[in-house]
Nucleic acid binder design. Structure first.
Lengths: 349, 349
DNA sequence: GAAGCACGCTGAACCGGTTCGCCGAAACCG
DNA sequence: CGGTTTCGGCGAACCGGTTCAGCGTGCTTC
C-alpha cells in the first residue's frame, strides 16, 4: 500500500513552497524555468497525481460530467444505441481528462433529483440529456439550475440548452422515396415512443412525404421500442387483410423482432415483405437477410455531444456571468444515410 | 442560478458552530436532541446538500466506484451483457448513494493506468474488474495498490481480490447432456476469447463432459465474440463435410449471427441444425425460432458484485490495516439455467 | 546612483466539510 | 457542600490543493 504523494511532499523535496509547486505543475508563470523543470522532475519521480477532491474544493470544478439514463435494467442492455453513445462520449471526455458519472433512473422526477444532487454536491460540471421529449421539463430545470448541459437530440426550439442533433426529415424522405421507387404503396411504420422529440419529427416527416407521393397507405403505430412490442405490432400488421408490403422500424431491435415474426409467418424476405431499420448497429448485419437501415455514427455523435459540453463548461468557467442569455446554440450533425441491404426489394405485383 | 448552501450558512442560521451542524447532520452524538432537530429542519428548509469534494477531502473517500471496460467503441454496444451488468451495479450503488464512474479503455496498460490514476486522485473508493483472464495482471496490480476491488467473474485461485461468479461447469454439462438426449452426436462450440477465465473453464467443462458421453465429435473454435466472427465460423462449420448437427455459442450475439448464416444456407432450424446461446438477453427471444439459451440474471449479478464491493469498502474504512491478508473471499451465484426454446430439436437421423 | 520595475518565490488565507481538545454548566456523588 | 462525571457546544486545526498580497533581488532607466 503505497503512500499518496502530496504537493507538500514535493515542495519539501524541492526545497520550495507549496505555491511554487502548484504554479510549476499547472504551467503558470510565477516560477523560473529552472525550478519548474526541477519540480516537474521531482513530481514525476515521486509519481505525483493531484488529489481530485482537494483541487475540486478550491477550484470548484469536478472534472466530470454526468449522464442519467431513464430505462429499466432489463431493457437498456438490448439497445446498442446507449452503449455506443456512451463509448463515444467517453472517448472525448477521457481525452480531456474528464470523468463520466453514470446513473440509471426510473422516472423523470428521479432524474431531476439526480441533477439537483449532482449540482449541489458539485459532483459534475455538466450533464448530457438523452431522449429529449417534445416538451421536456428537464431543459428548463437544468437551465434554472445553471448547470451546463447539452441536449442529445433536437432541434429544441426556444432552447436555453444547446442541442446536438441530426436532421431526421431527410432520412425519412429517403426511406419513403426508396420504397416508393421499389414499387411499395402500402407502407407501415413501427414508431418509437410518442413523447420523444425525434418520434414526433419523424411522424411529421413521414406524413409530409407520404402526402407528396401517391402511396395507398402509410400508417404509423407507436411502440415502446422493445422487441416484444415490435414483434406484436408486426404480427398484427402482417395478419391484417391488406397487409403492408414494407415495414419501417424506428430502431433496429424492433426490426430484428419484426424480421423474426415475418419468418415465423413464413413470409419470404424481401420478396413478400421489405424491412427497414433505423440506427444501424451491428445487429442489422447479423440477421438473414441483413437489414436495410439508416446508418448513423453513434459513437461520433456521442463524441460531438461531449465536445460541445466541454467547451460549454470551459466557457462559463472563464466568464461566470453569461450576459447574453441566448448563448445557446444548436449543432447539426450529418443526417443518417440509407444503407440498402438484403431486407428490401421490389414490391410484389 | 441558486446559491449553494454550505454548512456555515446553516450554522449561522441556527446560531451554532459548524461543528455542531456537522454532528447533527451526520447523526452523531455531541448535540442535544432539540438542537439536532432544529438544525435538521433548517438544513432541509435551505435545501442543503453537502459538497462532495469537501467531504471527500476530509474523510478521504469518494463515495464512488469505478469500472473500466476494455472494448472498442463499435463492438461494446452490441453486447447486451455490459449494459445489463452496469445497470445492476448502478441500482445497488445508488441505493447506497454511491456514484459510478465509467471509463472505456483500449489496452490492459491503459486500464492499469486508469486504476492508478483513480486511486491516486482518490476519485473512486473501489473498482470492479470485468472480463477476468486466466492469468490476470490486474488482480495483483490492484491488490498492490490497496484499492478495494471485486472480480466480476471467477473463481480466481490464490486470489488477493474477492470474486463474484457463477459456476459454468454445470451449465456446460447441462447443454451437452441436453443435446445428447436429443440425439446429437456431432456438436460444435463457437467459444469466446481464449484468454478469458470463463472461456477456459467452459473449455475444460465441455471436454470433460464430452469424454463421459460418447459423442462423435465435440469441437471448439475460439472467436472474439463478435457477430462477424460468429457468422464466419458458423459458415465454415456448416460447409464442412461432416457438419455438426448442433452448435453452441458462448454468447448470444454470435448465436444470432449463426442463426442468420443457417438461414442463408437454407437450413431448417431446428430440424437440420440446433442452436444454443449463452447469456440469455432479450435478443434470444427476438429471432425466429427463438434461441434456446442459458439464462443468467445479469442485472442481479451486477448488483451482487456492487454489494460485495460496498461491504469491502465499508470494512477497510473502519479498520485500515487488514491484518489477515487472506480476507479475500469468493461469492458464488446461482448457475445459469437452460431455457429450451425453438432453436433446438431432435437430431436428424 | 537612486528610483522604478519585473521577476521569482514565500506565507497565509481559502474552499467546505470533519474531528478533536477543551470548557462551562448541570447533574450526580459520597 | 466540594469534587467528579457527563453533556452540549465552541473554536481551531486539518484534509490538499489554488491563489493572492507582499517581499527581496537584480536589472533597467535617466
Amino acid at each position: 500500500m503505497t503512500r499518496r504523494v502530496t504537493i507538500a511532499d514535493i515542495a519539501a523535496a524541492a526545497g520550495v513552497s507549496k505555491g511554487a509547486v502548484s504554479y510549476a505543475l499547472n504551467g503558470r508563470p510565477g516560477v523560473s524555468e529552472a525550478t519548474r523543470t526541477k519540480i516537474l522532475a521531482i513530481a514525476a519521480e515521486m509519481g505525483f497525481v493531484p488529489n481530485r477532491a482537494a483541487r475540486s474544493l478550491s477550484v470548484s470544478s469536478a472534472q466530470a460530467v454526468g449522464i442519467a439514463l431513464r430505462r429499466s435494467a432489463r431493457t437498456i442492455g438490448i439497445e446498442p444505441y446507449y452503449m455506443e453513445l456512451i463509448s463515444g462520449i467517453e472517448a472525448t471526455l477521457s481525452a480531456g481528462s474528464f470523468g463520466l458519472t453514470l446513473q440509471i433512473v426510473g422516472t423523470v422526477e428521479e432524474e431531476l433529483e439526480v441533477y439537483r444532487r449532482w449540482w449541489a454536491e458539485r459532483r459534475v460540471d455538466g450533464v448530457l440529456l438523452c431522449d429529449i421529449g417534445t416538451s421536456d421539463r428537464r431543459l428548463d430545470f437544468i437551465a434554472d439550475l445553471g448547470l451546463p448541459a447539452v441536449a442529445v437530440g433536437g432541434p429544441v426550439e426556444g432552447a436555453r440548452v444547446p442541442a446536438v442533433w441530426h436532421d431526421d426529415v431527410e432520412p425519412c424522405r429517403d426511406i419513403l422515396e426508396y420504397l416508393y421507387t421499389l414499387g411499395h404503396r402500402r407502407v407501415a411504420r413501427v414508431a418509437g415512443i410518442p413523447g420523444l422529440l425525434h418520434t414526433a419529427i419523424r411522424d411529421q416527416a413521414y406524413a409530409d412525404t407520404a402526402a407528396e407521393l401517391d402511396f395507398e397507405t402509410v400508417t404509423t403505430i407507436h411502440s415502446d421500442y422493445t422487441g416484444e412490442q415490435g414483434a406484436q405490432i408486426t404480427r398484427r400488421l402482417l395478419s391484417s387483410s391488406k397487409r403492408p408490403t414494407a415495414i419501417v422500424y424506428d430502431n433496429d431491435v424492433m426490426a430484428v423482432a419484426g424480421l423474426g415474426v415475418a419468418h415465423e409467418l413464413g413470409l419470404e424476405i424481401p420478396e413478400q415483405l421489405s424491412v427497414v431499420a433505423w440506427d444501424d448497429s451491428p445487429l442489422c448485419r447479423l440477421t438473414h437477410p441483413a437489414l436495410t437501415s439508416l446508418t448513423r455514427d453513434i459513437p461520433a455523435y456521442g463524441s460531438k455531444c461531449a465536445e460541445v459540453l466541454l467547451t460549454l463548461i470551459g466557457e462559463n468557467k472563464v466568464s461566470e456571468p453569461p450576459s447574453t442569455e441566448s448563448r445557446t446554440f444548436s449543432v447539426q450533425c450529418r443526417p443518417a444515410q440509407l444503407s440498402p441491404r438484403g431486407s428490401t426489394g421490389l414490391a410484389q405485383a
